[in-house]
Design a protein around this nucleic acid. Structure first.
Lengths: 182, 182
DNA sequence: CTCCTAAAGCAATAATCTTTGCGTTACCAG
DNA sequence: CTGGTAACGCAAAGATTATTGCTTTAGGAG
């Protein structure tokens, strides 16, 4: 039930929506989710606060809604011929995505409101992992849960708590560990 | 610079501090950190909001300060004779700690404000992991980083995003995977 | 082009949160 | 026991955020 669905996707509404998105991303990256308010977002977006309140109701809802649209759920899953290559490519994309401070800040914000039910974000990752593992059937002993525990989890843990440890070898060495046994 | 340090640790101040702690923990567990306010905490604690403002200044500071005192940093590290046994025991303690919804909620809240510098919480875990690995020297190929990536990270990832997947086999099977190669 | 109305803006109001000055309580050093 | 003062409570004032009714703008069907 995303409020980004508009009955009039024409010029104005979309322009407003976009400037709000940009404002939220900037502010969350600059100050952290906790220190962002709706009037603040509205001012930076050059929009009336009322528009924000009417569309989303509260900050929580708005940020979650906007954060969802960052990592395109419809992007193509790698298909390079082996599970290892696919996972490596996929992991590199995730790392790249979250090395962007804005995306990392949005993830941290999302963590704060997680835990009640599975978020879109987590569900998508789990689905993608499952898809890749399935594709190569039983030719590998690796399960979707292994991918979550030993590839996704270490990346996300670092994004949230130790973002400066992420570099362009992170994804590869985690995949290496996954396939060679640590 | 924790504001829980008092110049008068006698009856009243401590009583106020304790009732505030309890109120914060309850409210964060009930509603999530985002939906807790200072007047709310003060009311539940039976304390004047002014006392909270004067002591901590803002919600952010207060919650972080209080959350720090939950997982005792001075608790003994397991010492069972083998690295595997020590890690298993240690991991079980962490899982147990975070299966408590209050502790999980505080962790999620902490995630929201993480990422700028290493938090006490993360630093302590890293230090403890290092200590155990060191103890058994080079008799094992496992490093402190391996422990963080493949034991701590999966646990914390689940605590934050998939808390219902935590059970009393989680710690053991992660340790098993760590030692047997996946 | 014209009309209908979704969506934005505006402004006044209400609710909530934060700050501040001042009096009161009660630790604790002497 | 007593005095000094840290820490709390109270209440009023100030600031910020949220709500609501009404007006204006502009997308898009016909």
């Amino acid at each position: 039930m995303s409020s980004t669905i508009q009955k009039r996707p024409g010029g104005r509404s979309t322009a407003v929506l976009n400037s709000i998105k940009i404002a939220v991303e900037e502010l969350v990256a600059e100050r952290g989710r906790e220190r962002v308010t709706i009037p603040m977002v509205a001012e930076r977006a050059g929009v009336n606060p009322t528009s924000v309140y009417r569309r989303w109701g509260d900050l929580q809802t708005m940020i979650n809604d906007i954060a969802t649209y960052r990592l395109d759920p419809a992007r193509p899953i790698p298909e390079l011929g082996t599970l290892k290559a696919d996972l490596a490519e996929w992991a590199r994309e995730i790392v790249e995505h979250y090395r962007n401070p804005t995306n990392a800040a949005l993830l941290r914000g999302g963590a704060a409101s997680a835990g009640v039910s599975e978020s879109d974000c987590t569900r998508n990752r789990r689905a993608e992992a499952g898809m890749m593992v399935e594709r190569y059937g039983k030719s590998s002993p690796i399960t979707a849960d292994d991918v979550l525990d030993h590839l996704v989890a270490p990346i996300i843990y670092r994004v949230i708590f130790l973002p400066w440890t992420l570099d362009d070898t992170t994804a590869d060495s985690l995949v290496e560990a996954l396939f060679s046994g640590r």
